[in-house]
Amino acid sequence: MSRKISDFRRTDDSENYEYFLEYGKVNISTQKPAVLLIGGSEGGTVGEDAATQWFLKQADRGDYLVLRCRGIGRQAQWVADNYSHSINSAAELSIDSREAANNPDVVEYIKNADALFFAGGDQNEYEDYWEGTATQDAINYLINHKKIPVAGTSAGMAILGDYYYAPSRQGLISSEILNDPFHTNTKDIYRSDFLQVPYLKHVITDTHLDRHNDRHPETRYGRIFGLIARIMVAENHKVYGIGLEEGAFVGIDEKGIGRVFGNGSDRGQDAYFLQTNGAFPEQIQPGSPLIWDNYGRAVKVYRISGTPEGSGLFDLNNWLTASGGSWEYWFTTDGYSGFRREEIRY
């Protein structure tokens, strides 16, 4: 049962938005800029609790707003149930059309937020409904002028990168992009005129890297590697990536220093900071396997395993200063079958 001081729900069916104030009253707060990236399958873990407490501390008992599509969810209720001492209010706003995204009431709800959480779902809907609207402007106002903390999980994390993958059809798998870098499922790679998040310039993010089950027969390590190859060739400059396993959380503070939260277990808690290493792919063309070897050094990667205390440090100002993890090289000599991840041993 939620500890609710006041509830307020407003729905505008004509413009497809829904707003629900789960807890508290909207007030004025002093917050710090920060970013929390969430791997996508975080529920009920000590890593989630630690990362959430870190994030809400940056909001300084402010007003917490969840943005999403497809109707109100349970994220604000969960925050109100478990962290009411750390917030002033918790609310959700579902924006499900471009008309709603330009509604003045919707824009005001967004601008009043002191902490912003992008829920999981379908990043293609976020792009279709919000990009190029007053909602986009309001979000960027919060991030770059009001300078509030912002978080995203799964699809919500995907849209925080300067580049993002927002499929309008079946999502891309590793073997598709590595065996054909121009596979039809790669057409939805975007350079963002969408969200401008500090320290994520020239960065593409990806989540669920380690997910492997009956519905997902391949992990996504090769996918983010392939996406970086495509972007590097298209943009002709250095490209970066942040990929998270499902139980990992990366907190980036106002100085651009990231640390990784997780459960401290042996698997599923790792964050990967990827950067191109100076050489373009040896082979990248439609219908042929990607070859990006560079003597086994195509992409340089720093890997940090998350802990409840927040482990390691990674400086996103220079992508060089790092501690608490290990460096790797990722490369492929022949598409999916030739993809390798190897730790650098000094």
Rank of each mutant, 00 (worst) to 15 (best):
Y83C: 04
S29H: 14
G71Y: 00
E42Q: 12
R68G: 14
K32R: 15
L67M: 14
Q58R: 14
Q31C: 15
T52N: 12
A76N: 07
N27S: 13
W78M: 10
W54K: 13
G73S: 08
Y64C: 08
I38G: 01
R70Q: 11
I87Y: 06
L37A: 09
I87Q: 01
R61S: 13
W78L: 04
K57E: 15
I28P: 01
R61I: 07
Q53C: 12
A51T: 06
G40E: 06
S41K: 01
A76I: 10
I72N: 04
D49C: 04
L65I: 00
A34N: 09
D60C: 08
Q75T: 14
S86M: 15
D63Q: 12
D49F: 03
N82P: 07
L37G: 05
N27A: 11
Q75G: 00
V35Y: 02
V46Q: 12
G24D: 02
I38W: 00
I38K: 06
N88V: 01
S41A: 12
Y64L: 10
D63S: 15
G24L: 04
R68D: 00
L37E: 02
G73H: 04
V46T: 13
S29Y: 07
K57R: 15
L65W: 09
K57S: 15
G71K: 02
A59Y: 09
D60Q: 15
A51D: 11
I87S: 11
G71P: 08
Q31G: 13
S84C: 03
L56W: 09
D49R: 13
T30S: 15
G44I: 01
F55E: 07
L56V: 07
H85Y: 14
G62T: 12
G24R: 03
R61L: 06
R68V: 04
G24F: 04
S29D: 12
E42K: 01
E48C: 06
A80H: 05
L56Y: 05
V79P: 02
S29A: 15
G43R: 11
G71Q: 04
G40C: 05
W54P: 03
Q58T: 10
V26H: 00
G71H: 00
V26N: 02
W78Q: 09
G44N: 14
A59R: 05
S84M: 00
Q53Y: 00
I72E: 05
Y83W: 13
R68K: 14
N82S: 11
L36Q: 08
W78T: 08
A51H: 12
A80Q: 06
V35K: 09
K32H: 15
N27G: 10
G71V: 01
R61N: 14
A80D: 02
A76D: 02
S86W: 11
A51N: 11
G39P: 00
I28F: 03
L56E: 06
N88M: 10
T45A: 04
P33S: 14
P33H: 13
G73R: 13
Y64Q: 09
R70G: 01
L37M: 04
I28K: 13
K32G: 02
G43D: 13
Y83R: 04
Y83K: 05
L56Q: 08
S84K: 06
G73E: 01
L36W: 11
Y83E: 02
A34F: 08
A59V: 00
P33Y: 07
S86C: 10
Q77I: 05
G73N: 08
A59K: 06
K57Q: 14
A59D: 11
